[in-house]
């Protein structure tokens, strides 16, 4: 990451609400397409977005496993923050998005990685949720608050979703 450029973009993905995460990825993909360096910091609930599906992890404590069961696994498991209606709302929204050719989250995430958007997972949140880096998708780096602040200092856009 170049520390000279002051027009990078950083986004903190705190939420695991589908709509919020969609907004974050939309901006990230747009910015990367316009040639900006973009870094997404995933913390707290946002880590769920990066979880890999169908993964068996051994050697975790009971509490960590319970956390694992309760938190959504990956982009396809996220729910709308409003009008979820036990999943029917989210299902409807995805269906409508497909019909109207609005990019769904897995596609946006793929495009983001393809266009060089950096994904950083917060180590403290990983510890808190009992998640390991191996449980996340490929290409995710680990970082802390100092790494975030350094990147944010070289950015002119910094969002928290």
């Amino acid at each position: 990451m170049s520390s000279q450029a002051k027009n990078n973009k950083t986004i903190i993905v705190f939420s695991s609400d589908l709509d919020r995460v969609l907004a974050a990825f939309n901006i990230a993909v747009g910015a990367a397409s316009m040639g900006f360096e973009v870094t997404l910091y995933f913390t707290f609930w946002g880590l769920s977005v990066l979880r890999r599906k169908n993964l068996r992890v051994t050697g975790k404590s009971f509490i960590d496993r319970v956390f694992g069961w309760m938190l959504p696994v990956g982009t396809e498991a996220l729910k709308l923050s409003k009008m979820n209606f036990l999943g029917i709302g989210t299902w409807m929204m995805k269906k409508i998005m497909k019909q109207r050719q609005v990019a769904l989250l897995p596609e946006l995430m793929h495009t983001a990685q393809e266009s060089g958007v950096q994904f950083v997972a917060c180590q403290m949140s990983l510890d808190m949720m009992g998640l390991k880096l191996e449980e996340l998708i490929d290409g995710v780096k680990i970082g802390g608050v100092a790494a975030y602040l350094e990147a944010a200092s070289a950015s002119d856009l910094n969002l928290f979703v």
């Binding site: 939309n26 993909v29 747009g30 397409s33 316009m34 109207r100 050719q101 990019a103 495009t111 266009s115």
Partner: peptide, 14 residues
């Protein structure tokens, strides 16, 4: 055509 934001911009960029 048919694509919604941000995909047209992604296509132009590519």
């Amino acid at each position: 055509q048919g694509l919604k934001c941000p995909m047209p911009i992604v296509k132009i960029s590519k």
